[in-house]
């Protein structure tokens, strides 16, 4: 196996992965598959959701009438909440290189996201109706 690209391993370069340092670690196929799955979820899905919310808020703030200003700000706040949830979720996800610990599914985080989005949609509903 080739050497791993450093940025894949994150900022913690001094810790040991399976007893190896990050420089001399060679990742197996299974670990690569796991890492890809995590990147698809945390870098792909969560990040994309936050980016979409940010861009929608920007478009609403810049292009729309001045009445919709607050709605755009709510979009941006929703994107920031999703970003924070994604950071906490990534921390709560276990270690790829230590498969001994049991896997905890993301029901709690899905509940948190649902709560945040429901509150956001409710606020936006009220604001649109009272325009």
């Amino acid at each position: 196996m080739d050497k791993v690209n450093q940025h894949l391993l994150g900022p913690r370069k001094h810790r040991l992965y399976r007893g190896h340092r990050a420089k001399s670690l060679s990742i197996t196929e299974e670990e690569l598959v796991e890492i890809r799955a995590r990147e698809r979820t945390f870098d792909g899905a969560y990040w994309r959701t936050a980016m979409k919310s940010f861009s929608a808020g920007m478009i609403i703030i810049r292009l729309f009438a001045h009445v919709f200003y607050k709605i755009g700000i709510i979009f941006v706040a929703f994107g920031m909440a999703i970003l924070g949830i994604s950071i906490l979720r990534r921390r709560a996800a276990g270690d790829v290189f230590d498969q001994r610990a049991p896997f905890v599914t993301s029901g709690f985080w899905v509940m948190m996201t649902t709560l945040v989005s429901t509150v956001t949609y409710g606020i936006m509903f009220v604001m649109i109706m009272s325009l």
């Binding site: 799955a37 698809r40 049991p102 896997f103 905890v104 599914t105 029901g107 709690f108």
Partner: peptide, 16 residues
């Protein structure tokens, strides 16, 4: 609402 499952096979990937 989150479950704790054994981490083996493709369980983690499925839930992700």
């Amino acid at each position: 609402p989150s479950l704790t499952l054994e981490n083996k096979g493709s369980i983690a990937r499925d839930h992700l």
